[in-house]
Design a binder for these strands. Structure first.
Length: 354
DNA sequence: AAGATAATCAACCGCATCGAC
DNA sequence: CGTCGATGCGGTTGATTATCT
């Protein structure tokens, strides 16, 4: 069986559209009050194109209600938020952004937003903090550089005080993210239970993750500590999507107040997703790490190579390498006297309600 | 200035879905 | 219920433009 492609006919033009072709298409559709059958339209409109090509040209470029130009910050937030719920359902996302086409949104996602999220340490596929080795290595380096005062940040101002503050801020962000990544890995590694984390912290009482692991941490029990009133009203229909991740929380909310859009809720601090997943979705989360590490080819070259070897007996060493890197960084952090108070504050906040 | 490389985005391709028969 | 044609959708390609060396 099999149906021949619609564009098999010989002599049909392909490639970029000429202004005259655009005019013919616009003239036909406007004079007929609509496109009618795309299959027959080219012939009737005097176009040497296949119907599919005409439809694409119309829906992606010639439609009068198409909004052109830069995406606004509001649109960016909407796209990221919707993508966290719907995934690559570009046409559904497009229905929530008047004037934008699915193709335009898809292109914008692939060329801008994906990179932006990666830079922020967020996996654009899962919308969770990245746990890949490369990223954690970068974080460790960033931490080291920031803590030793060697952080080189071009164009961040020449004034020494400003530079110091910025380096301090970068260090702060990296610390928070490192903590988040640690939690993520603990969350996704059932093998690392309370018993075998004792050796890392000396005793259970010192284990900073206890509250998190038993779901009582105030850090993640806070319901909506960072809401800014800019949340998107998610269409209830969207939430009915059976394919939507059940613990998706949406990046959403605010990008203000932090450089490059950094916000705490993006790191999962916003709500109880961690505590709830730890308790209720443990089984599911046992499979989370591979999902978190999966990414489009080329994004994380090292990990992709490693992850592709799913049957590789060394697979566990990949995870442990990643984990040990983080724990080394954690040890370093905890050893650092200058950051002791800082971490004490965070941990006190974490356990204040336990 | 010229070539190399990266980024962007319009357009294509093939599969999925839906409705008519 | 199965088949077929039309349309929609999402991944990918490749031409063009911008930036770097």
């Amino acid at each position: 069986m099999g149906r021949p492609p619609c564009c098999d006919e010989d002599g049909l033009k392909k490639g970029p559209w000429m202004p005259e072709e655009d005019q013919k298409l616009i003239a036909y559709i406007s004079s007929h009050g609509g496109h009618g059958s795309w299959r027959t339209l080219p012939k009737l409109a005097g176009l040497n194109r296949c119907g599919k090509s005409c439809r694409l040209r119309w829906t992606n470029y010639l439609r009068p209600d198409i909004k052109r130009g830069e995406f606004s910050e509001d649109e960016e937030r909407k796209i990221i938020n919707l993508h966290s719920i719907l995934g690559n359902k570009w046409s559904r996302i497009a229905t929530k952004l008047p004037g934008r086409t699915d193709n335009e949104i898809k292109n914008y996602w692939n060329t801008h937003l994906k990179k932006k999220l990666l830079r922020m340490g967020i996996d654009p596929t899962t919308h969770k903090p990245r746990t890949d080795l490369n990223h954690l290595m970068n974080l460790s380096q960033l931490l080291g550089a920031a803590n030793s005062g060697n952080l080189m940040i071009p164009n961040w101002g020449s004034h020494a005080l400003i530079s110091n503050l910025q380096a301090d801020h970068a260090s702060h962000l990296a610390n928070i993210q490192l903590l988040q990544n640690l939690l993520q890995i603990i969350n996704t590694k059932p093998i690392l239970n309370m018993d075998n984390t004792d050796h890392l912290f000396g005793s259970r009482n010192l284990n900073p993750f206890e509250g998190l692991l038993n779901g009582t941490s105030s850090l993640y029990m806070n319901k909506e500590p960072f809401l800014t009133g800019q949340e998107y009203m998610i269409d209830p229909e969207l939430l009915k999507n059976p394919k939507a991740p059940n613990n998706c929380q949406g990046i959403s909310n605010s990008w203000e107040g932090a450089p490059d859009g950094f916000v705490p809720e993006i790191l999962g601090i916003k709500n109880s997703s961690f505590s709830s997943t730890l308790n209720e979705n443990q089984t599911e989360n046992q499979n989370l790490l591979p999902a978190l590490l999966s990414e489009s080819p080329g994004t994380y070259p090292v990990n992709q190579m490693e992850i592709s070897k799913t049957t590789d007996p060394n697979q566990s060493s990949i995870e442990s390498a990643s984990s040990s890197t983080i724990f080394e960084a954690w040890d370093k952090l905890m050893d650092d006297e200058t950051s002791e108070t800082y971490w004490k504050d965070i941990l006190e906040l974490t356990f204040s309600s336990t």
